[in-house]
Write a protein that binds this DNA or RNA. Structure first.
Lengths: 364, 364
DNA sequence: CTGAAAGCGCTTACAG
DNA sequence: CTGAAAGCGCTTACAG
């Protein structure tokens, strides 16, 4: 026997067998008709019609769970986040992606399952069991700077359709990322064109693809402009940068480029140091920010201008990832299954020609 | 026969029968052990252990779809929005709720299914079939100013657990709403205490509970303060309010209270009229806003001060709704299943004592 | 203490 | 053109 599923309160909701009884056909025939398969369409008009009528009459709605178990699709797409899901602090970087995903999912008639990282028994977001849950959905989107490889490999082996939001190194893994390399190179080129020949690139220690790509772009742009890149890259853990800033200025550095991450540590540290040094931006020092989500760009210290740099098309990435995932699910992906979207350059107000007066002209 | 589910690529993922074979027990026993039921715990230690080992060995993860179909729960909560889902314009009012829901769901180890309103075949968000989809989840949260009653009644009849985010009139329907009545009354009381005796309440035509409650609160507060309420309530469809504003001023009105809705039509219209009239706020006119989501409060025209009024605890509503839903699912809800959360008064800068000089003292 | 069986509500070959 | 049957991977009484 079985469960008390048939609700404490009202009538049981109708299933195919109820329709079959009402229409005087077999349950299988009901399935055929309702799914609108070729076989179903080939049935006698009268059979079809009576099935359809009975279904309408009874208010039938297919059970998505049973549908899915019986190997069909269920019109649900998963979204699994490896960063802390939704936390208020990273809301700004996460939300635009969610909006994009939601928009496109809605447009495509797909529901969305937000896998909340923790969940059930074994907890951590990178727990293999946790990741495997995503299989309830027809396919899944993954997002986060750091992603556990094991569970994902397993999914690949199983042939489960998924797409990363963000570039990945693992070969064969489909993704929709941002072209940080080109965008970062362009920013450095812009600085060089404005007359900056001594600059620093400030980044965090984190080795996520998004960070690696920005650095590569910065170096590429610097070389293209003929700049000396030997001491250009500086890593910070977010601590006090006052000493650094002072020595850079003494070395004639006129511009600092900084990466934006979900922690924002590097940017915050730089901002604080600039503030404390009493420097004005861009008068005393030009600043460029590599990649804020569209619309969330902050303003620089010592001047309050909007950061120059580029925007990351988060929303569009979300939308495109949904499209790609759907293509994968249907088995016919449009050729590039690894896509990089262009970033929008932002003029901002933190880049100006360097004051030709040399280092340390203004007050300490 | 059946489907090609066993992945095009790799090995089939293990199921209970695989574990059973490896451990030399029946599949049912595996289920008992893995679910950790009383019966399962009562099994011989050695049996338990070998099952557990085999499961670990094979990397077993239960199939949530099958689990759900076989009548257990699946650890998924639905969120169904009747307003346009997520559209950028209402993002501000919707997002805090989503954040709250997400936070609590994560804390409780539940995944979230975002039903995208439209979806599949028949489209509109209030389509019965669309609403019925929510049954994949263990329970569902509903949100939106306007909610179709039919589909919901059906859900009730079926004994499906759900909770509204926002107060509802339908008897017996569980909800977590905001106490707009008290909060609105308090705002009017505050105005009266500041010396305002002639005021107007501007609202839209929309008859959602949230609007009805605000009006009730305003009238209650006004009566408590001994104010004349006969001409107090004014409805607007968002069009030109210049003439209204002029006549109010001539009648000696010194303060206007306005409701915040997801369209923001009334507020926008009032703001524009105040702007055009060249009035300063709160110098020439006090303004109060009834209910913006925490943190999204805008600034008033003619002065740029933050609106006085109250904040709606969207995030907390989301959290509490998840808790209530979980209680409902487990069958043991804590007594009030219809809850109203207090709103936070916001002092803001748009309420001041009326200038004792009477109407139209300042420039047109 | 454990196994065999029925059932959840569908889909999909396969017979007639 | 339609029905009977098997199967998806679980859970849950019910026997032993």
């Amino acid at each position: 026997m079985n469960h008390a599923k048939p609700s404490p309160v009202g009538r049981r909701r109708p299933r195919q067998s109820d329709i079959a009884r009402a229409a005087g056909v077999s349950q299988a025939t009901v399935s055929l008709v309702l799914r609108g398969t070729p076989e179903g369409m080939a049935l006698a008009k009268s059979t079809r019609q009576s099935v359809l009528n009975a279904a309408e009459e009874l208010g039938y709605v297919p059970d998505p769970v049973a549908t899915r178990l019986a190997a069909a699709t269920n019109g649900m797409l998963g979204l699994y986040t490896f960063s802390t899901t939704f936390p208020t602090e990273v809301a700004h970087s996460y939300y635009p992606i969610l909006v994009g995903v939601e928009e496109e999912a809605t447009a495509q008639g797909q529901d969305l399952i937000l896998f909340t990282g923790s969940a059930r028994a074994a907890s951590r977001a990178d727990d293999p069991a946790a990741v495997r849950r995503v299989r309830v959905a027809d396919g899944c989107l993954f997002f986060g700077r750091h992603v556990p490889e094991g569970p994902i490999r397993r999914l690949t082996e199983d042939g489960f359709p998924f797409v990363y939001i963000g570039r990945r190194d693992e070969p064969g893994v489909p993704y929709v990322g941002a072209d940080y390399v080109s965008a970062s190179a362009e920013v450095v080129g812009r600085l060089a064109a404005a007359g900056h020949h001594h600059l620093r690139y400030l980044r965090e220690h984190d080795q996520a693809p998004a960070s690696v790509d920005r650095e590569e772009g910065v170096l590429r742009g610097a070389r293209a402009a003929g700049l000396d890149t030997s001491a250009m890259v500086v890593r910070t853990d977010g601590h006090d940068l006052d000493a650094h800033l002072r020595s850079w200025r003494e070395e004639g550095v006129t511009a600092v480029v900084v990466e934006q991450t979900d922690t924002g540590a590097a940017l915050a540290a730089l901002g604080a140091a600039v503030e404390r040094a009493g420097l004005r931006c861009p008068d005393d020092l030009s600043l460029a920010l590599l990649g804020a989500p569209t619309g969330t760009r902050g303003t620089a210290p010592g001047g309050g201008a909007v950061y120059s740099g580029f925007d990351v098309p988060m929303r569009e990435m979300g939308r495109d990832a949904v499209r790609l995932l759907l293509e994968l699910i249907s088995g016919a992906p449009e050729p590039p299954t690894r896509r990089l979207l262009p970033c929008e350059p932002v003029a901002g107000g933190t880049i100006a020609a360097p004051t030709a007066t040399g280092p340390n002209t203004r007050k300490a």
